[in-house]
Nucleic acid binder design. Sequence first.
DNA 1: TATTGTTATACTCTATAACTATA
DNA 2: TATAGTTATAGAGTATAACAATA
Lengths: 149, 149
Amino acid sequence: MTAKPGDDDAHLPDDLEAVVGFHIRLAHGAVYRHFTETFADLGLTQKQVSVLWLVESTPGIAQTGLAARLQMDRATTMAIVNRLQARGYLLRGKSRDDGRKQTLHLTDAGRAALAEARRAIEAHEAWLKSRYTPAEVRTLIELLSRLHG
Amino acid sequence: MTAKPGDDDAHLPDDLEAVVGFHIRLAHGAVYRHFTETFADLGLTQKQVSVLWLVESTPGIAQTGLAARLQMDRATTMAIVNRLQARGYLLRGKSRDDGRKQTLHLTDAGRAALAEARRAIEAHEAWLKSRYTPAEVRTLIELLSRLHG
DNA sequence: TATTGTTATACTCTATAACTATA
DNA sequence: TATAGTTATAGAGTATAACAATA
């Protein structure tokens, strides 16, 4: 059962290769795994970092604001904010403008965690961008933006 | 509390916009949601369809073969194959070459489900590709391929 | 009536660890 | 020793439904 030189254990059929959604899923998986490795020490996920990032850049943002920007369900947003609050990274407050809303702010620990996360993201992005020229990075971002935005 | 004309509830900070991994995650989420809607009747996930697809095009493939092609853990592969087997879409057999391996084959029900899935994927891919020219589709696939494969 | 937050619930993916059988 | 399958376990994201408080 020796593998022949030409064998490719990961070879995919041509018709599947032509499915764009398939490549997005595989690429996302690869990025997700590398992200998880890079953030193993910090113990933060992609979503959690995105939320910290947005709360810092938009202090007082409500959960619906996060949901709109990150394209999440209200319940999903709750779950993530709960985890970050449980770890002491952010605080919920009451909005004076609208009694239904809450205002989110980072704690000092949250700001420290985000600062560390930014450094980790730099390394992660470098790994990712090493495959592309600057022009290709711009093209990739532009093409991907048409799927959300 | 009326929204002003220029308001954009989903506006993102520029520094986050420049993070490639962030766009991959958002794009994947958008594709995932549309896929789920398209496949609501069939009740199949992306991973499950990919597995059915590969088993059909590579009859007798082992679970490790699926894992290598779809970049999955052994345990993850087990879980997915278990679900498909429980629904009667595929069968496990014993390999004659290697007693450790199993051979996977589609049942008639599995082939029928895959045929339906292919039609649903056509609609899903059309929704996805409507944003791009054929050349852009090729570029996107090529750029994404550098992250996995 | 509509929106926001909340809770409960469920499913899938993902991964680690440990075990068995086979190579 | 290494590989393939298996089981148990756990965490995270995703979503639906229903409810309370507020607009």
